[in-house]
Design a protein around this nucleic acid. Sequence first.
RNA 1: GGCCCGAUCGUCUAAUGGUUAGGACGUCGGCUUUUCAAGCCGAAAACCGGGGUUCGACUCCCCGUCGGGCUACCA
Length: 450
Amino acid sequence: MHRSTSARRLDHHNGLRIRDCVGLPPMSAPANSSLVDRFAPSPTGQLHIGGARTALYNWLVARGSGGKMILRIEDTDRARSTKENVEQILDALEWLDIDWDEGPISQAAADGRHREVLAQLLESEHAYEFEGSTRLKVPDEGSTTVHDVIRGDVTFQHENIDDFTIARSDGSPLYNLAVAVDDLDSGVTHVVRGEDHLSNTPRQVMILNALGHEPPVYAHLPLLHGPDGKKLSKRHGAASVQELREAGYVPEAVRNYLALLGWGYDDKQTLFSTEELKELFSLDRVSKSSAVFDEQKLRWMNGTYLRELAPADLTERLEKFTGRDGLADAVELCREKIQTLADFWPLAGFFFDGPADDPKAREKFLDEEGRSRLQAAREALATTEPFDTPSIEAALREVVTRLDAKPNKVFQPIRVAISGTTISPGIFESLELLGREESLARIDSALSTS
RNA sequence: GGCCCGAUCGUCUAAUGGUUAGGACGUCGGCUUUUCAAGCCGAAAACCGGGGUUCGACUCCCCGUCGGGCUACCA
């Protein structure tokens, strides 16, 4: 029902010159149109950053190989699987511009099929009933090996695995059974998921074997941690895709950053367009060890993407983010200064909402001395013609020379008068954008109230 | 506790037996400069420890240490 459409809208804005440093021909993944992978989140709320990375890796593997990706919602736990929670996942994927070829499939909807397989397992005596529940028989001896493209072969001795429960006493199928059956029925060839699932994998392999099928290829991704080394969670700041969006990050930067959290290409490239990622990403280069989510680096990366956006595109995103319009001119003045969309308004809000209220700034720069310079600047600005950046700069620099002052002794009082704070875009450009009338009004106001 | 995975600068990573152990973020210093950024230049910063194997180990093996995951009739 909810079929994702072509997800490339944002890519043609991506004019990053990030290919410059690539010297070697890409080792693109071999075309493998028969590859099928899947992203199978359980709907527990907002999409976690770790989940987003898993989705991204699956997507890159599928898109880079000509294969397909299935989106399956693991909703057999009805209590958690609310419609809202499912929407959260879809919403996050859409924002990230990650699409899929099949689904979203409801795991719960396959309940009948799961029960059918359950009966089959009972019939073939691979499973048996125990206190009402159903368990899979695990041999006392021997072992099951999971073939993992990231970790190599991982072998589990059967003596360490008890006969495990595959269905509740009410007959409802449990996770390991449902997953194994769904992957099998969907023709999944590659299971790419978090390392926290590794211990479950031999169980799923045993179910598949009991059904007479070969298991898919596995790839267990290293987990994501917070700066304190603990599993990433809310208390580390932004932990979900939605929070990243609200913090002002753009999807192409998030994709680039997430791709690098647990994967590296070579010793020189850090910035990858999504097209490059599709082409270059490969599971065998995924790191084995857990990675720490570092928002500082994301901020830097986001800033580089923001500066590469076409002005009109940046403006559009900022207008959507702030809910305001008519931002184009202010965006032009701020584009070099912001790292996230959220950085914009604190820097440019004064153009639209009047000066901010920063008593300390006024105290420091609008003292008696500051006001006398401001008065001199005011007089120069009153007759500057035309009232544009070059003329304003010439006029104010003349004031600086005449007063024999340091430039910022003249400029800072003006800045505080018009913006209310000590930080703003270029002062000449800001005055021009504000216009003579508004500029003089704010300066007069500062002169009279200080 | 048991089973399993992992270990290179603070962080993300490169290196697949022979490198002055490379890059990026961050940090520090400088340049630029009207504030803040951005940009440019430069610096400091790592192979967890111990045994092997080898002419030679970050790379291979073993042990230890540390970190992490799993250990439900959750997913």
